[in-house]
Each structure stands twice: as structure tokens, then as C-alpha cells.
């Protein structure tokens, strides 16, 4: 323990010029030890695969909502998040750094999953099909999509858009008691009301009691590119989509 404290202290000294403390145990051994701690202390809620359990965040995207630095994430593991089921964990400093090293490793995509294609050709396909026409507006934001979806999921969505439509992209069609038809992208819903972006681009809310008919449309408005892309073109497009900032 004393040796480890010394190690931590020297790690701190080395970081003196930096504003944030980086994980001193981000090593193969650290990740290995962290994987065991993760399974026993974290996986009950975050899932063995780190992809979330019951409303708990997906830890594999590389995007951490509450903190991005190692030091910030260390504090979250140690102290928890108020108002949530994320308790602070009584782990040794060493164990927290090891856990964090493992959690960070979950966001590194496995090489076998990486699409192989040509980014420039993919960009041309993206433009030719006017993908941004919808995806810059109400369709899912494709910036950093690779952090949220695997290439396999993206491939499936491009070929079969209805295969999985997250509820945040379900649309509504309804008729008011006065006989008016309303439709748009459903943004939020509770027992008594629904909030949506209507076809004219206005944000609106309506009480369900004012509606005589209410329908949620779970199909995607996106056309399938199954018959429009060769397998090579699909890989080009995937490289463009998953290749970082555009």
C-alpha cells in the first residue's frame, strides 16, 4: 500500500503542470484487474457488456455525460451521482483507477468491426442521396454516430431502416376533437400530454383529452438503400459515417 501511495504521489507530481489527473493505471494489467472489479461492482446495473442495464448509461460509446477526464470519472465512481442509483463505491484508489481503465477500454471499437472502404467515395454517396436533407434536421444526428451504433447496426439501418427505430424517432398522427389532423415528430409524452415538432417546424404540445384519435407511427420515413448501393458502396458510406468528424 505504501509503495502504491508513493507511486500515486509521483504520478501526481508528474501531472503537476496538467490541470487534470490522468489515470496512472491505464495499463494492460490495470484493465485486466479492472475487468474483474467491473463485473462484481458495476455490471449489476451497467450490464456485463457495459451497454447499460435499466436506464443506466451505455459505457461503451466513449461519451460520458457527467465527466470526460479521468479525474472526473474517478470522482463519480468514488462519490456517486446525487439523485440517481449510482452510489459511491468504497473501493481503494488503485481499484477505482483499474475499473476506469477497463471502462475506457470498452469504448475502443474492435478492429474486426471496422468497415473497410473509401471515405471520399462514401462522402460522395452521402451527398448524392441527400442524407443530410433529413439527418441535419429531425432524423438521427449522424455526427459521432459511431460512438452510439456499431457498424453492424448502421449497416442494418441503411438496408432496413425499419429494423430498429428508437422511440425518440417515432412520429405521431392524430385528429383533434374539432376534426383537425396533426402530425409530426413525437418528442415527449406523458399520461395527459404529448409534445411534438409539427410538419411546419413548430414546437407544439397538446392535451390528449383534446384528441379524438392518436396514433404513434413506429416505421422509419427513411428509404432503404438496399437496391441503390453495391456492397462496396455500402462499406464506403460506413467508413464515411464512422470516420470521425465530417
Amino acid at each position: 500500500m505504501f509503495k502504491f501511495a508513493l507511486f500515486l504521489f509521483s504520478a501526481l507530481l508528474q501531472q503537476e503542470s496538467s490541470t487534470r489527473l490522468a489515470n496512472p493505471l491505464n495499463t494492460e494489467a490495470g484493465r485486466e484487474a479492472g475487468s474483474r472489479i467491473y463485473l462484481l461492482q458495476c455490471a449489476s446495473c451497467h450490464g456485463r457488456d457495459g451497454r447499460g442495464g435499466q436506464g443506466t448509461p451505455d459505457l461503451t460509446t466513449g461519451n460520458f455525460r457527467r465527466a470526460s477526464s479521468d479525474e472526473g470519472l474517478y470522482q463519480i465512481i468514488a462519490k456517486g451521482i446525487p439523485g440517481t442509483t449510482m452510489a459511491g463505491f468504497s473501493l481503494e484508489a488503485r481499484e477505482i483507477w483499474q475499473t476506469l481503465a477497463y471502462v475506457r477500454s470498452l469504448s475502443v471499437p474492435r478492429p474486426s468491426e471496422r468497415p473497410t472502404g473509401d471515405r471520399a467515395r462514401g462522402e460522395a454517396i452521402f451527398r448524392a442521396h441527400n442524407c443530410a436533407g433529413c439527418h441535419d434536421h429531425t432524423a438521427p444526428d449522424l455526427q459521432q454516430i459511431a460512438r452510439r451504433r456499431t457498424p453492424a447496426q448502421l449497416r442494418r439501418s441503411i438496408l432496413d431502416p425499419d429494423a430498429e427505430v428508437p422511440s425518440a424517432y417515432w412520429r405521431l398522427r392524430a385528429t383533434t376533437r374539432g376534426g383537425r389532423t396533426i402530425s409530426g415528430l413525437r418528442l415527449n409524452e406523458d399520461t395527459y400530454t404529448v409534445q411534438f415538432l409539427d410538419e411546419s417546424g413548430s414546437l407544439r404540445g397538446i392535451a390528449k383529452s383534446e384528441l379524438s384519435r392518436y396514433q404513434i407511427i413506429r416505421a422509419s420515413p427513411m428509404p432503404s438503400l438496399r437496391d441503390k448501393l453495391t456492397p462496396e458502396q455500402l462499406e464506403d458510406l460506413l467508413v464515411y459515417l464512422t470516420g470521425g468528424e465530417r
Binding site: S44, C45, G52, Q54, T84, T85
Partner: peptide, 13 residues
């Protein structure tokens, strides 16, 4: 806990 649970509904919050 010796295990975990996945569910589409958050337990709280």
C-alpha cells in the same frame, strides 16, 4: 449481488 438485471424501463429516476 451475484448478477444483474437488464430491463427497458429504468428502476428509478
Amino acid at each position: 449481488a451475484g448478477g444483474g438485471v437488464k430491463a427497458p424501463v429504468p428502476p428509478t429516476r
